[in-house]
Design a protein around this nucleic acid. Structure first.
Lengths: 70, 70
DNA sequence: TTGTGACTTCTAGTCCGTG
DNA sequence: ACACGGACTAGAAGTCACA
C-alpha cells in the first residue's frame, strides 16, 4: 500500500538534497543512516511513521510539514 | 518515542469526533476499525505510518494534512 | 553514484477482555 | 462511554552484497 504522502515526502527529500548539491551517500552519512535507506525514501518506497518523519525533518533542519506538502 | 505529530493527530481526530457528537465506539465502527484502536490514536499513543494517516483522513473525509497541523 | 533484493530486529496495527 | 493490559501478526526500521 503506497500512499500519496510517502511519494511527496520522497520528492521533497530529494529536492532538498539536490538543492544542497550532495550525493545520497554524503547526505545519508551526515544524517546518520545508510545510503540505501535514504535512497528508498527518496524513491517513495518507504512508508515512514510519524515519528520517523519528524526525526528526519529535524535532522534536515526543516519543519516536518514541509516534507509532506507540495 | 512519542512524536509531536502523533499528539496533534490525536487531538485533531478527537475534535473531529466531538464535532460530530458521536462516541469512539460509534465512530470506530463507522470507520471500520476497533474502538480501542481509535481510543489510543486520540490519546496520542499511536505512531501511525503515513499510509495509515492518509487512510484515516480519507475515511474521515478530510485532507490528510488537516490531521497534522493545529 | 544510485538501485534492488534479501535479511533481521523492532514496533505498528488489530483485537480480546476487564475495570 | 472510555482507558488500559496483554497477545499476536503484519509491516516499519535499518543494514548489506551485488549490480
Amino acid at each position: 500500500m503506497t500512499s500519496q504522502l510517502q511519494i511527496i515526502l520522497g520528492r521533497k527529500v530529494r529536492e532538498h538534497r539536490l538543492r544542497l548539491g550532495v550525493s545520497q551517500e554524503r547526505l545519508a552519512e551526515d544524517l546518520g543512516f545508510h545510503r540505501t535507506y535514504l535512497g528508498s525514501i527518496e524513491r517513495g518506497e518507504r512508508n515512514l511513521s510519524l515519528a520517523s518523519v519528524e526525526q528526519l525533518a529535524a535532522r534536515l533542519g526543516v519543519p516536518p510539514l514541509d516534507l509532506l506538502q507540495d
